[in-house]
Design a protein around this nucleic acid. Structure first.
Lengths: 267, 267
DNA sequence: TAGTGGTCTAGACCACTTC
DNA sequence: AAGTGGTCTAGACCACTAA
């Protein structure tokens, strides 16, 4: 019936963090001190902190100690971030608009990027309807917000479309004025609709390292396929987002396949 | 440089599970045996299993042992699950259609439901644009698939709309022929569009118990607001989904606020 | 070098499940 | 009662960070 001791201690700290009694950046007692103060073993004290970390409330690191995690407000991602007005008519880049909305100034170092031509994941070639061994241009970015990595985003492009363009210029930062969609637009590919496919899973060890999150932390993987009006795929992208930093919003009409029958019968 | 011993052992088992060498339902050695066989302490062996569990690869329980988790294929949730043709013209209920698509027969016991009238979460009253203390009808379901709980879904309704209807009849199972949307339709509220808002977070202790998942497992919380054509909210629902069981797909046109200016200026 | 978390042990004892 | 996971200890030693 009685909860284990580590849970009591964990719940106590969790409460104090949630109520704001312990503020972000504040250090918790070091493990040995906690053990001594509460009359438990060092392992038990350690477990208390590990559980807090698993819930995303603290970060632990050798040398630094155990610190209350900055409560990064979740960034809301609505489809407005793709608004054509932003990248077609102006200089804005979708993710910079996000940044401005979140109150952080953009810095060029907030995004690093690597570009290469080579084999791609099967989902990418499948999105283009091509054989698995087709080589694609691959543009991988790591995006940070306030120093903390928030997500990686890797775009896959058809070589015949983007070869020699600014899209595959390996300079860090957004791909020129207006970003990737603007470049595609200028190349004659006006994007028309998108499909996003997303789910949550534990981070791989490698992702945990890249995103600077603890092992066993979760991410949201998002696959985005971008089409022109005639259904041609012009970009396929895979995003890996630190789960607790983002929140997605979609607004859509309730489908009615009965009403859409005539159209689908045309095809 | 060398990875810790527990990680070696964990990776070994993770590999054998992923490749199918260890099949779902198969039991791993009990902790004491693993410890003896690998020459590690019982605590270390335990940690190996705990990490596998945190990654969703095994389930542990006293008496039963540590068992490879059935790899429930992720259920894809597209907006087609709301297709009007399904609930308006026929007998289908959205979630039953999902079930059929996933190859599982529907059983009435797969859904339990409780109905009550009372205070609601602030997000619910906010969705309706009402004061925080407004009482709403609340219909909570726990949905299972193959015995395993997959998600909870709690709908909030305005009392003046649903009072006395089948929607708030506390009989287990879907709310009559065609489900909730059909009942609203018959009441003269034809649903027109929806907004879904979703993000991933660790399960609370209570949710972990309800959904029969280990502590520290993650869920996806989804808020769904359903509108009629004139923008009236007729349902607000909160879903809590076991993170690894679901995958959401949205397809949408790329917005163009410049083109939409005339319309927004009318308002 | 001192500080702090991370790994590991050998063993005791507890709690839930099945027989 | 036997089986299996869960909690906890006291202490050793390792590994990364900062001054």
């Amino acid at each position: 019936m009685a909860p284990p001791r580590w849970r009591d201690l964990k719940d106590g700290y969790a409460e104090r963090i949630r109520t704001g009694e312990l503020l972000p950046g504040e250090r918790l007692p070091e493990i040995r001190d906690l053990a001594a103060a509460e009359g438990v073993s060092k392992e038990t004290a350690h477990k208390v902190y590990r559980e807090l970390q698993a819930d995303g409330l603290v970060t632990m690191s050798r040398g630094h100690g155990t610190v209350v995690r900055p409560q990064t407000p979740m960034k809301r991602l609505g489809i407005d971030r793709y608004d054509k007005a932003k990248w077609r008519d102006g200089d804005e880049v979708a993710f910079i608009a996000d940044r401005v909305a979140s109150g952080h100034a953009y810095q060029r170092s907030d995004q690093t990027q690597t570009v290469s031509l080579g084999s791609a994941p099967r989902v990418a070639t499948e999105a283009y309807g091509l054989p698995a061994d087709t080589e694609l241009y691959q543009r991988a970015r790591l995006v940070r917000d306030g120093g903390q990595p928030t997500h990686t985003l890797t775009s896959y492009y058809l070589p015949e479309i983007v070869k020699g363009t600014a899209l595959v210029d390996p300079t860090p930062g957004p791909a020129g004025r207006g970003g990737g969609f603007r470049i595609l637009y200028d190349l004659g590919y006006e994007i028309d609709h998108m499909e996003e496919d997303l789910w949550s899973r534990p981070a791989t060890q490698e992702e945990a390292k890249t995103l600077e999150i603890p092992r066993n932390y979760w991410v949201v993987e998002l696959h985005r396929t971008t089409y022109t009006a005639d259904g041609t795929v012009v970009e396929f992208a895979i995003g890996v987002h630190v789960a607790t930093f983002f929140r997605w919003t979609y607004r859509f009409p309730v489908p009615d396949s009965a009403a859409a029958n005539e159209r689908s019968e045309d095809a």
